[in-house]
Design a protein around this nucleic acid. Sequence first.
RNA 1: GCCAGCGUAUCCGAGUAGUUAAGGAGGCGGCCUGCAGAGCCGUUGCUUUCAGCAUCGUGGGUGCAAAUCCCACCGCUGGCUCCA
Length: 481
Amino acid sequence: MKVYNSLTFQKEEFIPLTSGKVKMYVCGVTVYGSPHLGHAKSAVAFDLIHRFLKYKGYEVNIVKNYTDIDDKIIKASQESNEDYRIISDRHIAEYEEIMELLNVEKDTRNPRATEVIDLIIKFAQELISKGNAYERNGSVYFSVKSFPKYTSILQRIKEHNTESEEEDYMVDQDTAFGEDKLDKRDFALWKKMKEGEPYWESPWGKGRPGWHIECSVMILNYLGERIDIHGGGQDLKFPHHRNEIAQSESYTGKEFAKYFLHNGYVNVNNEKMSKSLNNFFTVADIIKDYDPMVIRWYLISSHYRSSNNYAPDSLEPAKKTYNRLINTIKKVNDAEFSDKPSKQLNDLTNKITESKDKIIEAMEDDFDTPVALAELLTLFREINKALLQEGLKINQSFKDQFFSYIEFIEEIFGIFPFLKSKTLPFSTVNDDEKDNLIKNLINLIIETRSKLREKKLFELSDIIRDRLKELGLDIEDKKVK
RNA sequence: GCCAGCGUAUCCGAGUAGUUAAGGAGGCGGCCUGCAGAGCCGUUGCUUUCAGCAUCGUGGGUGCAAAUCCCACCGCUGGCUCCA
């Protein structure tokens, strides 16, 4: 299996530190707003990686953090006059709800920054004692000069591009913190409290953690000194991931993460979707119009490293395609059986196996979902053609094979969550009494309408159909008897 | 300025040297329908019967062979500042 490693700018064979086990950390969200489609892309991308590694038989330990204290949360708290914890709790709850709807599997652990404050303080103290960090005026900074390879992390250095060139550039850019930092590139491990901000006691007085340190600390604490895969969005390469590497490797003296994987963005009009540009679409809003699985299909139909360019009607093709998949599953489920041996059915059965092999092959090449999904669609087209156009009858063995394939698809792509409840979305079984009542009422209306149609009272039955459509119920008519 | 990446048919989006440029959307034709929608099948660069000729931002180059490798240029995005 190959993965694209951002550290080396190339695809590499994936070999975990410990055979059969994968330690994985993904940078999560800062919880000050409703998750938008970009957050969903990242979550779904790493969910797919998580699922495929498990499919390949690895025991995966995956940790994803919540940054629940930072400038933006403090700002939001001041603006709404709520405790910062209320804001972060609310957004974590919403994030989890949305991840469940998107069928993102649970991580092994989701620690919050505020849970590991003690460990952050210890980590910073250790870096000070090793000479990699220093205290100034109640804040603690990491000394970039103490980590010589800093500039070359996640960036290709050409011969003429010297470190001083970059420093010169950064001097021009950076005006804040100038008085406390010894070097412009240094970054805060611990920030001194400002008036009215939440704080924790530390050896350096009241304050709160810097941004990058929580990830290093959580990895050390929950996963160990070295991990296999570190993931996150492209935008986190610098400064976040570079700083994480500097801290962690200074602390342990060992190579930090073996592979860094970065997902691409969701763009809007070819610009990055982001909160600061105010061009974002929240998942909560999109879900009002589209099934979460349509969103998921849309996100995985482009490669995790490339970007999706989103427009409000971008999900229409995904919706059509997804409905087609469901339809085929339904057709196989309801297909007529025949005992007659059939070469055509044997061929089709073989195609299921071939399709599965090709999907695995695509996924082993840096999780190439577009190619894998194309294979899936090709198989479905073959099945549709045989069953619908050529009237092929199936047998139990074929049906079993097909549904085992569907379960495989769910296992690695997570696009058919309805399988878990053993209920296909089209045969709505619900124990809830209220739902049953509604269902019965609907059936009554449909039966009545069928009678009208038998009597050729089309005008009236069309009105009923239109009215039901207004209520969100689509009726598909078959030939009138 | 530096770093990463992108430019593929009407649109979205794969493909990174070797028979037909995956798949989808839209268009068109067909099946189905009382009608419609949905669904299903086929088709969708050009000239033409067979067949031939093009084509992957532009221009060069290397190769028997290039969308794919190299060079130059044009255009776009992102990172270097909180970010998935």
